[in-house]
Simulated scan of single mutants.
Amino acid sequence: MRKRGSVAGVSGPDRSYIGPVSTLPLRDDLSLPFQVEQCDVRGRIVRLGPALDSLLARHRYPEPVAHLLAEALVLVATMGTALKFEGVFSLQAKGDGPVSALVADYRTPGHLRAYANFDAERLEGLELGPGGTTGLVPLLLGKGYLAFTIDPRSEDFERYQGIVDLSGASLADAAHAYFAQSEQLNARVVLAAAHRRGSDGRRAWRGGGVLLQQLPLDPGGLTQEERAAAWEKMQVLLGTATAAELTDAALGQNEILYRLFHEDGVRVFETAPLLDQCTCTPDRVKGILSTFSTDEIEAMAVDGTITVTCQFCSESYRFPAEVVRRAAGSLDA
């Protein structure tokens, strides 16, 4: 296997090839599509920094839970940014382990949100492996399933859901089982997350990942044998990407792609921004509350006030019970 180059890469204008000299500033919270045309492969690299850190910091999850949720967000970002229509790409894992549920979703044009339900007492008794980040799927989620859902906003496209058993040691392993079941073409992904200490001494969450997909067969392009050999080579090269590289704030996304694939000429396209953005609003929450019966509204009220906390962003909303009753009454009228 060849040694990877260690020279910084950079993209020029849109749809340009990466070169060996970097003059662009480093950027975070983005998805960058790319293509390795000589090998019939396309893909996306995702880098998450401040958006991921702010999302996880609001919940104050235990470190292993936050790590697993960070990888889930990287995964939905790498897959969701491939949507060619407005909609939602979501991941939902349910198991019998200390983490009973994990949800992450990507909403066009680049909004991310996520949450996890866990049993604190069961987490305390766990014996984590080296670094506390290996084998998290069987350790935290246990036995269960992983569901990927594509929910278009347009009636021109149908809702799709693929479900696989939780298998392997990582979310990447589970994703590969989904690819094998659902994709007509080969696909492979690497995911990474880390709670790293920055130059200011503060620890912050970072995440990164690379998704590879084999392009459809071109009758005038590579033969079947050449495509198989090229895909095998791309998987080997992808496997050399380390978690340290993918989560290094000082290492740009173009440099990572150059290190991995520059021998075959990697071409990059326009980046897509990624944001920590929930969908909850006061009006939306009040609208949901107004669908409950009068007795249910009374049961939810404490000292005449109903408090609702969003699972995704931890934002709390408070409404006078009388206001909710009036809203519910207007719906019944």
Rank of each mutant, 00 (worst) to 15 (best):
G5R: 10
V7F: 12
I18P: 08
I18E: 15
L30K: 03
P33W: 02
P33M: 08
Q38G: 12
C39V: 05
V41Y: 03
R47E: 13
L48V: 03
L56S: 08
L56Q: 05
A57G: 09
R58W: 04
R60L: 15
E63P: 05
A70C: 07
A72R: 00
L73T: 02
S90Y: 00
K94A: 14
P98T: 01
V99T: 00
V99C: 14
S100A: 14
S100H: 02
S100W: 00
A101T: 02
A101Y: 01
A104L: 05
T108E: 07
G110L: 03
Y115E: 14
R122S: 12
L123W: 00
G132C: 06
T134C: 07
G135Y: 00
L146F: 03
L146V: 01
L146T: 00
F157M: 10
Q161V: 04
D165Q: 11
G168F: 00
S170E: 04
L171D: 07
A174Q: 02
A174N: 00
F179P: 07
A180D: 12
V190N: 09
V190Q: 07
L191H: 04
H195Q: 13
L222P: 05
T223H: 04
T223C: 10
Q224F: 08
E232C: 06
L238P: 07
G239E: 11
T242Q: 13
Q253P: 15
Y258L: 14
E263W: 04
E270G: 13
P273Y: 01
L274R: 01
D276A: 14
Q277K: 07
C278L: 07
T279K: 13
T279N: 15
C280G: 13
V285P: 04
K286T: 05
I288N: 12
L289H: 04
T291Y: 09
S293C: 09
E296I: 04
I297Y: 03
V302P: 07
F312L: 15
R318N: 08
E322N: 12
V323F: 10
V324S: 11
R325N: 12
A328Q: 03
A333R: 06
